[in-house]
Design a protein around this nucleic acid. Sequence first.
DNA 1: CGGGTATTTGACGACTGTCAACGCCAGTGG
DNA 2: CCACTGGCGTTGACAGTCGTCAAATACCCG
Lengths: 237, 237
Amino acid sequence: MQCASCEIRRRALFQVVPSEYIQDAQTKRTHQYDLPARRHLYEEGQAASMAYTLYDGWMLLYRAISSGGRQGLRIALPGDFIGFMPEGEAAYHHSALAVSNVVLCGFGQSDLHEMIDRHSQLSVHINRIQSRYMASCQDAMLGLGRKTAEQRIAHLIAELYFRLLNRHSLQDGETSMPFPLTQELLGDMTGLTAVHTNRVMRKLREEGVLEPQRQRLDILDLEKLVAIGELRRRDVE
Amino acid sequence: MQCASCEIRRRALFQVVPSEYIQDAQTKRTHQYDLPARRHLYEEGQAASMAYTLYDGWMLLYRAISSGGRQGLRIALPGDFIGFMPEGEAAYHHSALAVSNVVLCGFGQSDLHEMIDRHSQLSVHINRIQSRYMASCQDAMLGLGRKTAEQRIAHLIAELYFRLLNRHSLQDGETSMPFPLTQELLGDMTGLTAVHTNRVMRKLREEGVLEPQRQRLDILDLEKLVAIGELRRRDVE
DNA sequence: CGGGTATTTGACGACTGTCAACGCCAGTGG
DNA sequence: CCACTGGCGTTGACAGTCGTCAAATACCCG
């Protein structure tokens, strides 16, 4: 089934590829996927045959640990390009879990590699995307290694807010955002337990910084949230 | 001053570029740099005009935090390609500090971008390098978020050991490695204080896992080290 | 209404940070 | 040769953050 609505997203990824070519062979193998909440798109160690553009919904990219828990690597938001592996890498290094119901556009990994061969600018473009992800990954390392629980959570929420803002999923000045993450998932991202995440959320509520709704989150004091999390706006893509 | 010895390394980076071209214009602007221990190669926020191949010595890549400390992102070992930024990125996102005396080969960032334009395979190659760094960055996130101090330190040391082994800086089966990191730097990498790092190192010594020498480290029980750190060998480049 | 999932709270303890002091060693200069 | 200095390693006492365990409550969907 062709995905009409994800045309926009595909253009974003392939903006550097001549459009005649896109109409061509490769895109025939582009498919839309729907995935309900709590289901995996792929798992760590699995053969990496596809890459995806997330069109709608949120996903958690994470790595499992031996004791059964997991460490979140990134919350994928609509527009994110996930699951790409360079040629020669056989398996995914992480798992991708649907946080809410999601819609994705899938590309064959080998199709992408072939396109990269023909359109060198595509590789440069993907490089830039990867470089951004790397920067946010380093941001996360800084938080996990050196920040308190409250700072990490504030940082994460502020980051998500600005990412949505930057891709115009939120209006400028809007104080309420969709928020499908459970406290357990927040904990996965911040290296905390669900219990402690809860305590921190209460504190942030009591401080008048934010107010959770069902599946949504009101940001009551964005400035304070940014200050607590020590978020540097320029680092957010 | 031209760098004869870094010819090997340059080939590693440019292995995908026709050799006639390498003899050409760009490489004229390749220079060797020597930097004494404790000096910065570049700092966060600085204009990213150069990228480097580390030829000799160890470096710490890190990001500073507001309270004055720092979070290590990666220990760069001989052969590592550092400081590259995709076209359009103006400033480094992290700082690079020489741990020991180091020797580097520098390339102009814009020269690299130009080469990438002409030789698309170079971009693919850099992509692969970045992807590896990303994987080890995610490894670190997992440690910082979910592992104990002992696990993190064991993981880091084992990782460094295998990285040296993989690039033949160590012989197979050799149990002693060069180790210019102070306990403070170990702490920077693992998100611990120097004091606590010390306690963990003592524990590892008492358990007969390792034995520090001056500027060197003896691995007495590699298997145990790997087990404690839960290192997955296949994830190490 | 019932069952599963998510949130909330309390009590307790472990891990790690902070503060402070001391020892060791190499290099320096007298 | 020795005193001095600065960097690093080492140790102890204490406090705080956060994890663990357990239980109660709230919420959602069928």
